[in-house]
Structure formats: structure tokens, C-alpha cells
Amino acid sequence: MSSRIPTPARLQELFRLQCFVFGKVHNPEAKRIGTKVLRESLKGPQIRNYYYPSKQILPTPAKLNKIFGNWTTVDPEEEHRLERNEYLRRKGKGAPKKLKEKKVIEKKRK
């Protein structure tokens, strides 16, 4: 009756097969093959998205309302600007109205 203890050669073969089955690098002599570099996960996307997402890529609420006709999304910054403009116009400190072409010509002649 043969002994039940496996030989070292057989154990090595088992280890090699284990690596083959589970997709690992077989490196029994522990040489520096650089697989450590390849094993690391890529962290580029995570590093790139550190700051707030860009507003240049995202559509504005006004654009969204235009695309989907029923939508009524509110842009607080834009609303604040319009309110301020109205307030200034009531005080008489608003931006001047656009001049028509005729008036511009008259001024130039003077």
C-alpha cells in the first residue's frame, strides 16, 4: 500500500495548477516580475473626479425646460439675477434700452 502523504513534486504540480485555474501568476522562486504593478487597480477616474462636477458639461435648468416642454425646473441664481434687475430698473438704475439704428445715425451727424 502506497503512503497517503503526497510527494513534494506532486504538491508543486498542484500549486501550479491552482495558479492556472484561478488566473494567478505562477512564480515559485518569488522573482521580481513586476506583477505587483499590474495587480493594482486603476485609480485615475477616482482622482479625476475629486472636485465638484463641471457645470460646462451639465445642461442648465433653462435648457432642460426647453428640451422637455412640461418641465419647470428653477434656477435660483438666475431668479436672483432677474429680481435684482427688476429692482434696479424700478429705482431707475437699470441698464439703458437698446438704441435704434435711426437715432445712432442722427447722433453721428451732429
Binding site: K31, R32, I33, G34, K36, V37, L38, E40, L42, K43, G44, P45, I47, R48, Y50, Y51
Partner: peptide, 26 residues
Amino acid sequence: DNYKRHMYAENEVARKALKYLAHNTS
């Protein structure tokens, strides 16, 4: 810093490949 982050993400794979070649003693 945002620019550097974007550039790193773009060139990460190339850097890793070169590092792997340089570190491989075989």
C-alpha cells in the same frame, strides 16, 4: 490641480506599462 488630475488619468495606463517593464527582472 484639476488639470494635473485629468492628465494623470489620461496617461495612467502608459505609465503603468512602462513601470511594469522597468520593474521586471526577467
